[in-house]
């Protein structure tokens, strides 16, 4: 199984006056996850398939929230690496919905314009949203090409792309929702939508 990143011994000082005492309550209210129940058993970190790619294991992020370390929690990579596979919450003895905490932290990071812990993953999500905005559905080829254009990694994964193309798994033309006006409305504030 995966090895968990061991937290390095650190002499970092936590300045109590800098802690955000409302942070945990706020995250708890928005995520409905009841994170106060976490007693740091670390089971979530043992089961997580993605823990190697994270800077803090899931229980570490919960600890940051419990301590009120707002900036560290919102700027970590973990919240972006999590794919909501729910392995952690199925193993959590207190059945805390950990993925819901990650969802909430991601939203807060974007709202507060925090430094994004993994820009590439966010860029990918934005490409998917771009596709939904344009077609009402996701167009895989378009998403892949634009993602490559924006990240500049043209030669990464070319073989996979070509194999998918030859198997006709990537449609050239996007399938599109007909009532696009209904989709467009979701991407604009109501007062920007053209009146009937």
């Amino acid at each position: 199984m995966n090895s968990q990143p061991m937290p390095a011994k650190t002499t970092e000082v936590i300045n109590i006056s800098e802690l955000d005492h409302h942070f945990a309550t706020e995250v708890d209210r928005r995520s409905q996850a009841d994170l106060k129940r976490c007693y740091q058993c670390r089971t979530c970190g043992n089961g997580c398939p993605f823990v190697e790619a994270m800077d803090y294991p899931p229980y570490g992020v919960i600890r940051l929230v419990q301590f009120g370390m707002r900036q560290k929690a919102l700027e970590c990579a973990t919240i972006w690496v999590c794919v909501s596979c729910h392995t952690c919450s199925s193993q959590c003895p207190n059945s805390i919905d950990i993925a819901a905490i990650m969802d909430t932290l991601r939203s807060m990071a974007l709202e507060e314009r925090a430094v994004i812990g993994n820009k590439e993953i966010l860029a990918f999500h934005l490409e998917v949203l771009h596709s939904i905005e344009r077609y009402g559905r996701t167009h895989k080829l378009g998403i892949m090409l634009r993602h490559k254009l924006l990240t500049g990694q043209w030669f990464k994964d070319v073989d996979v792309g070509l194999r998918m193309l030859t198997k006709r798994k990537l449609d050239l033309v996007a399938s599109k929702v007909r009532a696009m006006d209904e989709i467009n409305r979701l991407f604009l504030p109501y007062w920007r939508v053209k009146p009937r």
Partner: peptide
Amino acid sequence: DWNCCGSSSAYSVDPELGFN
């Protein structure tokens, strides 16, 4: 005329959009 359910991405960056 169904549309995308929002996929992981909409729920990752804008849960309200995913809901809609």
